[in-house]
């Protein structure tokens, strides 16, 4: 039996890594992949809570999260493809129409 704290720590580490990706990467596809990593941090946390509290909700939320992640990836990637087709650019710092 692994203590709950370990799972929380793992989740936080994953979250922070994903966050770093979102904050610093230029490539829009890796940006989206980093979002997936953040999602996975949540999955770890919910599954661990469910496992330790003997409550089914966490598992079900994981299930919904996976569905949401799929939806999010679908929309995000189609937007990325659209951007690439229109502008031939995938680097977010080059797409600055809204520069003040």
């Amino acid at each position: 039996m692994v203590p709950f704290e370990y799972y929380v720590t793992l989740s936080l580490i994953l979250f922070v890594i994903g966050l770093a990706g979102v904050l610093f990467r230029r490539n829009i596809i890796i940006l989206l992949a980093s979002l997936e990593i953040i999602m996975n941090a949540l999955i770890v946390l919910f599954a661990a809570i469910s496992f330790h509290a003997k409550d089914i909700s966490g598992y079900l939320i994981v299930f919904f999260l996976i569905g949401m992640a799929a939806a999010e990836a679908g929309v995000g990637l189609s937007l990325a493809v659209l951007l690439y087709k229109k502008l031939k650019k995938v680097y977010v710092d080059e797409i600055n129409f809204y520069r003040g």
């Binding site: 979102v22 904050l23 610093f24 990467r25 230029r26 940006l31 977010v92 710092d93 797409i95 600055n96 129409f97 809204y98 520069r99 003040g100």
Partner: peptide, 12 residues
């Protein structure tokens, strides 16, 4: 406006 560079990362 100096902060408003139009880059998503900066907004983040």
């Amino acid at each position: 406006r100096k902060f408003h560079a139009g880059v998503v990362n900066y907004y983040n």
